[in-house]
Design a binder for these strands. Structure first.
Lengths: 240, 240
DNA sequence: TTGAGCGTAGTGGTCGGACCACTGAGCTGA
DNA sequence: TCAGCTCAGTGGTCCGACCACTACGCTCAA
């Protein structure tokens, strides 16, 4: 049996709960490279013995790291380190958008406006014909139906395709969280109920034109205006 | 005893683990407003009974929501919903920076460059004399010592004070995660070892000048260049 | 030889109960 | 009046048992 525990001069650091300590130790193992992405951890029972805690506490630590997207537990198989890619680690970002309210929603939209306008500008400079076709597919599908649910889905996919073309997966993962389904459903619903469909259509068309022209500055302005419109609407809603 | 459980037409939805289901149900209670920020939850034992699961599983669910910054457990007192502010929910963002590596670090720096340059521009337009004094305090302290640790601490505080002046707490919380202590220690160390102190000093001075002049565009450019320098250095490091 | 099917050991998932450590409110008594 | 104590209640930890599922190897017929 290999000893994974680091040597301790002090036998009892005793800071925080044992579970919290276990979380930190596993995180440290990964950060220090002792556990590579995709690697399989020892069993829960073994890990508990190695860190000197009960299996219950170890399970809580593992569960915590699981929701953070660091570990992945496969029933009957074992516990594995995720690939630690942007998508894995930023999945929890959606929780923020889901539980924020009031002024915080405006702040989130402001962050989204900043990131999405830049991402759209980057996309305008780099987008390939294939990626552009994907964008146009969702743009067309959005106009071909009047089912709000379907429109929302294609609206999401439209922006997602653009952001993907920007080439920064981390930024894409953050924007994915900021545009989580429940978040957009909450804000967009009220916005669109005020007959903003036509305006949204015009703004999407402007973004599309900028992409076709490979004009980053126009794309940035169009995307910023698009998000800014919603942002402003939400701001007035809250001040009433 | 009040019944908190929603009425279920189907007695057994049975998707995912019971713990995962418990996490979703508690999140839903908060999202729907049945649990206000700061509210005290029923005891672990009570919650377990209400959701029809064991206390062990319920504890795992609570632990998960605790690390996400949604709940807060106080030993001997009870479990409470946090204030759900940006700082609470985005604390986990630091984990991303801590566990990312290679190309992903460059992507994170790119996101930071975008957000921080905008934040600095906003700060230039809004900063008050008091806030400016705070910025200058750390700028001076950074030059008054040659202890790398202390320099790094004041460097962090310098940027934190500027971002705080921008007035968007959500953006500040994200940037806080992107500049987490371990992250900067990892990247900055190698950067500064190449004698970049003088350059860093010039760049900080440029940012400061733009703040004093209340010139947003100059501030944006200076901050973007500042982060961009490190970004470019890291990029070349990785390509070797 | 080969491959489909069947065990089976081992893994994470769940449960129940016991006890410990800490908090906070109420009681006691100077 | 209030400092100090008491104690019921709460989260923290541990244990042991069993269930659900997976992966691998074995068997046996084609």
């Amino acid at each position: 049996m290999d000893e994974i525990l680091p040597r301790q001069t002090e036998p009892a650091p005793q800071k925080g709960t044992v579970t919290q300590r276990a979380i930190e130790q596993i995180k440290a193992m990964i950060a220090e490279g002792r556990l590579e992405p995709g690697a399989r951890l020892p069993t829960e029972r073994e890990l508990a013995v190695q860190l000197g805690i009960s299996r219950s506490s170890m399970r809580e630590a593992i569960r915590a790291l699981t929701v953070l997207g660091v570990l992945e537990a496969r029933h009957g198989s074992g516990i594995y380190v995720t690939q630690l890619e942007a998508g894995d680690l930023l999945e929890t970002f959606g929780v923020v958008a889901d539980l924020s309210r009031g002024p915080q929603l405006v702040e989130l939209l402001e962050v989204r406006r900043i990131l999405e306008s830049t991402a759209t500008a980057l996309a305008a400079a780099r987008i390939t014909p294939g990626e552009l076709a994907e964008v146009e597919k969702h743009l067309a599908a959005m106009h071909a139906t009047d089912d709000p649910e379907e429109i929302l889905a294609h609206d999401l996919a439209f922006h997602r395709a653009i952001v993907a073309a920007a080439g920064n997966d981390t930024m894409a993962a953050i924007l994915e969280g900021l545009s989580s389904r429940t978040f957009r459903a909450r804000v967009w619903r009220g916005y669109q109920e005020e007959g903003a469909f036509a305006r949204t259509r015009r703004e999407h068309a402007a973004i599309h034109r900028a992409l076709v022209a490979h004009d980053p500055e126009a794309a940035r302005a169009a995307a910023a205006a698009h998000v800014g419109e919603v942002e402003e609407w939400l701001r007035t809603q809250l001040s009433q």
